[in-house]
Design a protein around this nucleic acid. Sequence first.
DNA 1: CGTTTAATTGAGGAAAGTCAAGTGAAGTGG
DNA 2: CCACTTCACTTGACTTTCCTCAATTAAACG
Lengths: 239, 239
Amino acid sequence: MARASIATPQAPAIRADDPWVASSGKHHQLLTEDERSRLTAIGSVVWFNKGAQIYQQGTNASAAFNIISGVVKAYRTGADGSEHIVAFLFSDDLFGLAEGAKYTNSTRALTPVTAFQIAIPALRSKLTRDAALDFHVICKLCQELRQAQQHSLLLARRQAVPKLAAFLQLLEQHQSARGELGADIYLPMNRSEIGEYVGMSLEAVSRAFRTLTARGIVKSRDRRHLVIADRNALQAISG
Amino acid sequence: MARASIATPQAPAIRADDPWVASSGKHHQLLTEDERSRLTAIGSVVWFNKGAQIYQQGTNASAAFNIISGVVKAYRTGADGSEHIVAFLFSDDLFGLAEGAKYTNSTRALTPVTAFQIAIPALRSKLTRDAALDFHVICKLCQELRQAQQHSLLLARRQAVPKLAAFLQLLEQHQSARGELGADIYLPMNRSEIGEYVGMSLEAVSRAFRTLTARGIVKSRDRRHLVIADRNALQAISG
DNA sequence: CGTTTAATTGAGGAAAGTCAAGTGAAGTGG
DNA sequence: CCACTTCACTTGACTTTCCTCAATTAAACG
């Protein structure tokens, strides 16, 4: 630990990459210290307990959020009460997407969450002035769009085992892109939520896990921690 | 037709809405005449024949595109040769999304296409300077992100008929949002491509069409033109 | 330690996928 | 202008896969 100073941990941060510059797959912090402190001035830090609802779809969009730590799910509730998870959001992600001044999704904290909150008017006036910030937001939105497309690829898979395999690869690549790489993958969501994300029943998720472990491709320490034992096989299965 | 002057039809245009302002669902042109002419100076108009490939996934991202007229599909080819369509793109849409300087999708013209093309370096340097343009690009990216999420909602549906019903609603709302509303819906893609977008086989698409027409909910003039006869029933089916 | 919630496992049925044949439409060349 | 070729779409029969419902086991929490 050679660093003498600790970077302010409660400040906004955007992690992504310039889509038009070659990169190694590991994402970088886009905001400069200067930008971060200027943003800090116009927002506030908020906390959410595990399981807490952050906002509901259809309500007035009063603020946008930037996750400092924790995991959030963005989901929509169908007319029949079924939930579909649109995205899992991690530290350095942005959320609070709106349409016509209303939130388009509901969001809920899956773990205890610390987030940076900016009121929409303040954000808007900042965005219409600060081209450097804008560019970074554009980079981040491009990344989120790519992830949404990746998600649609996942959902289009028909068979359960390849689907889950692809999901695990996404999670791993996600964790490695932000340097949170231990030897194991941590699942911040339960089986039901995995099912709601990949588009299958929780039973099918459970069965797919079983076949993957039975084939020795993944090993599960605990229901929420697993290790990829055969990365090549996983790649072959996910296609 | 009270207008005396004709707006330059070959200039770039972005159609979307400020996500933080209440709107009627009909999207507006975000660029001012001034911005449009400044963009015109740094890009060029290009044409593609029906069926022409625009670029391939994995190749170096040299330019971004803005559709002036026509329809484009953005798709990815799996290892087994199967294609999944990530998005259909219409006039006033942006595309040319990259990651690490490579295109993440392939794109192909479904109809004759006229597009405005901007080289990446020119676009980058413009984006790092022009906050007004940036803000509009951000609005557009938010809209594309919402559409991608809508697509994932569609893909998560399990049954064929509700899936197709939701797809038709998307298409209609898309056409009405840009004021291209005749009484009928035009399908610029074939059954196979619908299947690749909604995640089912072309046979299933065909059967779902049949049940919708058999129930009198849609009427098809021709395989590519249909009318929604019972909008309420369609809404009820799609959920 | 008992209670509650999450996850696994099993059996049966519904739905779409696949394979294959047939029909219709569009476009080509005589 | 018409016959022919081709491609897109439709329709049918059969198989596979996952969802649903139900029972059981495992883990988390007070």
